[in-house]
C-alpha cells in the first residue's frame, strides 16, 4: 500500500450504530477471495443491499447526500472477527478515517496496518459530529494526524486524539511494520539463541 496520512479535510458519512461487528462490515461469504482488492463493493453488504441485490435506499451509504473519506460510527466499532478484510473493504470503498468513541482492538490494529486512521473521540464530540453532519451533509471535518487533532469545521470545536508515536510515524511516512521487523532480524536471532524454545 502506497498511502500516507497527514491532514484530511472531508465531508463525512454518519453511521450512528453501536457495536458494528466485522461480520456486518464484510460478511463471511465474501472472505473467499485470495487478493486484497475489490472488497469495497461488499462493504456493509447486507445493510446496503437486500437479498435480491437491490440497494436499500434508507442505508446511509446509499444516500446520495452523504459522501467523503471520513466514516463516523457509533461506539465499539469493529468488534468480533479478526478479518482484515473489514479494513480492506473500508479502505477500498474510499474511507481514510473512521471516527468513533471506541474501537475493538484487533480491528483498530487492522485499520492502522492499512492506512485507515481510527480516531477515538469523546461521546460528546461524537454526538456533536453526528448532529452537525445530519444537519448539513456538506459539513466538513478536519483530521490532522501530525497535530493529533480532529476539528468540526462547522462549529470550530476540536479534540485531541491518541495514537502511539510509532504508528503515527508509520502512517505519516507510509511505512509498514514488516520493514521494521526485517531490519531487526539480528535481534530476533540473538533472542532465539538465549530464549527457552521448544
Amino acid at each position: 500500500m502506497d498511502d500516507k496520512i497527514t491532514i484530511i479535510t472531508s465531508t463525512a458519512v454518519p453511521l450512528p450504530v453501536e457495536n458494528v461487528d466485522t461480520d456486518q462490515i464484510i460478511p463471511a461469504r465474501f472472505l473467499k477471495a485470495t487478493s486484497r482488492e475489490g472488497f469495497g463493493d461488499n462493504l456493509f453488504r447486507d445493510w446496503r443491499f437486500d437479498k435480491e441485490g437491490r440497494k436499500i435506499e434508507s442505508f446511509v451509504l446509499n444516500d446520495p447526500r452523504y459522501s467523503g473519506s471520513i466514516l463516523i460510527a457509533g461506539k465499539n466499532f469493529g468488534s468480533g472477527s479478526s478479518r482484515e478484510h473489514a479494513a480492506w473493504a473500508i479502505h477500498d470503498y474510499g474511507f481514510r478515517v473512521v471516527v468513533s468513541s471506541f474501537f475493538a482492538d484487533i480491528h483498530k490494529n487492522n485499520e492502522l496496518n492499512n492506512f485507515v486512521l481510527p480516531v477515538v473521540v469523546s461521546e460528546e464530540f461524537l454526538s456533536e459530529l453526528f448532529d452537525t453532519v445530519f444537519a448539513n451533509p456538506e459539513a466538513k471535518i478536519c483530521v490532522d494526524l501530525p497535530a493529533q487533532t480532529i476539528t468540526n469545521l462547522s462549529t470550530g470545536h476540536s479534540e485531541m486524539f491518541d495514537i502511539n508515536p510509532y504508528k503515527k510515524h508509520c502512517l505519516i511516512n507510509g511505512l509498514d511494520d514488516i520493514s521494521y521487523l526485517l531490519s531487526r532480524k539480528d535481534d530476533t536471532e540473538a533472542y532465539e539463541r538465549t530464549a527457552r524454545l521448544w
Binding site: 479478526s82 478479518r83 482484515e84 478484510h85 479494513a87 482492538d105 484487533i106 490494529n109 487492522n110 496496518n113 492499512n114 502511539n164 510509532y166 509498514d176 511494520d177 514488516i178 521494521y180 521487523l181 526485517l182 531487526r184 532480524k185 530476533t188
Partner: peptide, 22 residues
C-alpha cells in the same frame, strides 16, 4: 491472540509481531 492478515505476514516474515502491551 488473534491477528490480522498484515500481522500474519509479519510473523511469516520475521517470527515476530509488533504489539502494544495490553
Amino acid at each position: 491472540f488473534g491477528i490480522g492478515t498484515s500481522e500474519v505476514e509479519m510473523v511469516l516474515a520475521s517470527q515476530c509481531i509488533l504489539q502494544p502491551k495490553p
